[in-house]
Design a protein around this nucleic acid. Structure first.
Length: 620
RNA sequence: GCCGGUGUAGCUCAGACUGGCUAGAGCGAUUCCUUCGUAAGGAAUAGGUCGAGGGUUCAAAUCCCUCCACCGGCUCCA
């Protein structure tokens, strides 16, 4: 959000004002210590509004405003300043008392620095005349946040750097940079990015951006906000298949699906406090006279369910799950890219209430292993990072070793000197994109604060307890999974998606559409009965051109069908994955495709059976 | 959010520095011809508020200002 004191500077030949009548109750208007009229020559006039959030730190905002004033007067080479309260600059005014205080403090401070100051009274309708010099710097506006810069620096300095290690299965542990050479290529890239602050392939655009456009998967929409995407049928199919996959996985594990609201009332203390931890990265809006926010994950709704439940010890671990379409994070504009970083995205989100830290650790381990299962099913390599406070690490070192053993691969350890988030330990998994940069996907964390904040309790029959709660996303955001999948294709000799995610799984190309399409239809009917997505390229184009089309559409299996096939027993099946043509009977083809899909979810086709009926969504 | 780059036909791009004929090309689309056996057959036609708004000028896609979007870097990623 765009908050904080607003300043409009006018470099003036002169400024003159006169108070006319009080702009509110008597108590509001300033009458002492300020002139009711005044004039100053050759000055900088500062029109000022103090914003409501400045009240949190009046001294801070005064200090920062002074910095701006020194800067501006320095540039304009003048020591004459008019301080002019100007409420109309504001979006959300501070209380009059706070505003008056700020104005008075500014005057005092400036005078102490031997400025000539003229201050106009607060709380009056005033007539004024200003003569702007009109040179390029004569009109300047500034926003001032209430956090003091030094304070911010101090806070950051206070945060001692993390300690980075790599732990191998078996428990061997080294400093991360030292261990780098002995790790996989992806882990090396991960360490360089996380620990050494190296930007991989600087200046390059991640390959998935082009692919998502070229393949008519996903696009931008000018009519929405930045980072809110639209999905064309092919992209929508991939997205839906991934969501089904994750839903099945989590429900099978024991997550109980729910659906909760996407907006929450900031008037509720628990919401306001929790939301406050995310600073300005929220969509906020007013609905009637309530201040609302859009959720950034499913935490609020699920915590709210848990709060209202009567949870018995026997219900634990209690796992509540939701595919949060959508979650919203108002990321800074410059941070939003493609499918990797969005303002509206879909996150599978499960919260698990556990009985105690022992059970929390046990669950964390299981859920982390389940996340690695997605790595296998989706064919995306993930590198794990275990992040925890020093305290947690020292108390649980043996357990951390056990986790790394269970995961069966080396993990990056981040040891954080002090807890400054709601979690004390978390594991996340990063895919490495085509440029060598991490995409953080699955994550599971132990939350040690929220149960108390949201008043979540379970009973052991006699006593009430606050459960440690795990936050879990088994796959990470669906869009990020798509990003990782597409990035992966960019490194392949024959770029392709897994069969179960291919919008078209089998394509028939009739040599002469007018003569051979009927037979293709028969073949297609048969495959469709086995839930395979088939289409027929019946366009009146050369065979060569339609083959090219099947290749650029990344169709895993395509078959030219002419007289030979109609008369013969077998089909010449082009298998893109192996880059070869195999003779198969229709039954063998069906079996081969079904084997690829195995028990992964399968949607029906989203585009018409005949390629001649496929509309162009983006013009490619 | 800050700094830099980019924005021209549905898509990919030329033209911009140095203002000046009717803003071009390839792909795609439409129509016609071709009836084709493993990566793009031929021809014709249509298609443009040159990102939006303002300004300078006799004249602006081209120069200036503001805004928007995309890309990169910073920051950020609970």
């Amino acid at each position: 959000m765009d908050c904080g004191m607003r300043l409009l500077f006018i470099h003036s030949d002169h400024l003159e004002f006169e108070a006319r009548e009080k702009a509110g109750p008597d108590s509001l208007a300033e009458t002492e210590g300020v002139p009711m009229e005044g004039r100053m020559e050759e000055c900088v006039t500062a029109f000022i509004s103090v914003e409501s959030d400045d009240e949190e730190d009046v001294e801070g905002v005064v200090e920062n405003a002074l910095t701006e004033l020194r800067d501006v007067t320095g540039q304009l080479n003048t020591q004459n300043v008019v301080l002019y309260p100007y409420a109309h600059l504001s979006e959300d005014l501070a209380s009059p008392d706070a505003a008056k205080q700020v104005m008075q403090d500014l005057e005092t401070e400036l005078e102490a620095e031997s400025y000539e100051v003229l201050r106009a009274p607060f709380g009056w309708y005033k007539s004024f005349e200003v003569s702007c010099k009109g040179h390029p710097l004569s009109e300047l506006s500034r926003h001032v946040a209430h956090h003091r810069d030094e304070e911010k620096d101090e806070e950051e300095l206070d945060r001692e750097p993390s300690d980075w290690k790599v732990m191998h299965p078996g428990g061997e542990t080294d400093d991360a940079v030292t261990a780098k050479a002995d790790t996989s290529e992806d882990m090396q890239a991960f360490i360089e990015d996380e620990v050494e602050d190296v930007v991989a392939s600087p200046g390059e655009e991640p390959p998935h951006l082009q692919i998502m456009k070229e393949k008519e998967l996903v696009g931008y929409d000018d009519l929405s906000d930045v980072g809110n995407l639209r999905f064309y049928p092919r992209g929508k199919l991939i997205r839906d298949a991934l969501m089904d996959y994750v839903n099945d996985l989590v429900v099978d594990y024991g997550g109980m699906p729910v659906e909760t609201p996407i907006m929450y009332d900031l008037g509720a203390r628990c919401i306001d406090e929790h939301a406050g931890k995310f600073g300005e990265r929220q969509y906020r809006f007013e609905s009637g006279d309530r201040r609302m926010m859009l959720r950034f994950a499913a935490c609020f709704g699920q915590f709210s369910i848990m709060r209202d439940m009567h949870i018995s010890e026997n219900d634990l671990p209690l796992r509540i799950y939701e595919m949060s379409t959508y979650s919203f994070r108002r990321e800074q504009k410059g941070e939003v890219t493609g499918l990797k970083r969005l303002r509206a995205f879909t996150m599978p989100d499960m919260h698990t209430a556990t009985g105690d830290m022992d059970q929390a650790r046990e669950e964390l381990m299981k859920q982390a292993k389940l996340a690695l299962q997605t790595s296998e099913d989706l064919d995306i390599n993930y590198e794990p990072a275990i992040r925890m406070t020093r305290e947690f690490y020292e108390e649980n070192e043996a357990w951390v070793e056990e986790v790394v053993d269970e995961l069966g691969k080396s993990a990056l350890l981040e040891i954080i000197p002090e807890r400054h988030h709601y979690w004390s330990a978390k594991i996340d998994f990063a895919a490495i994109d085509g440029l060598g940069r991490p995409i953080e996907n699955p994550t599971v964390q132990i939350d040690v604060e929220s149960a108390e904040r949201f008043d979540i309790e379970y009973t052991d029959g006699t006593d009430q307890h606050h459960p440690p709660i795990l936050h879990y996303s088994p796959s990470g955001g669906i869009e990020r999974v798509m990003a990782a999948l597409l990035e992966q294709t960019a490194t392949m000799d024959t770029p392709q998606l897994p069969t179960w995610l291919s919008p078209t799984q089998v394509r028939f190309i009739p040599v002469r559409p007018d003569q051979h399409t009927d037979y293709c239809d028969e073949l297609a009917d048969d495959l469709e009965a086995a839930d395979i997505r088939v289409d027929i390229d019946d366009r009146d184009e050369s065979v060569g051109k339609r083959i090219a089309g099947a290749e650029t559409d990344w169709v895993p299996y395509y078959i030219i069908v002419g007289g030979d096939e109609i008369e013969g027993e077998t089909l010449g099946v082009n298998v893109r994955a192996d880059d070869e043509e195999l003779d198969m009977t229709p039954a063998e083809l069906k079996e081969t495709v079904r084997e690829d899909i195995a028990d992964l979810p399968q949607q029906a086709r989203y585009l018409p059976r005949y390629v001649s009926d496929h509309p162009n969504f983006t013009g490619n």
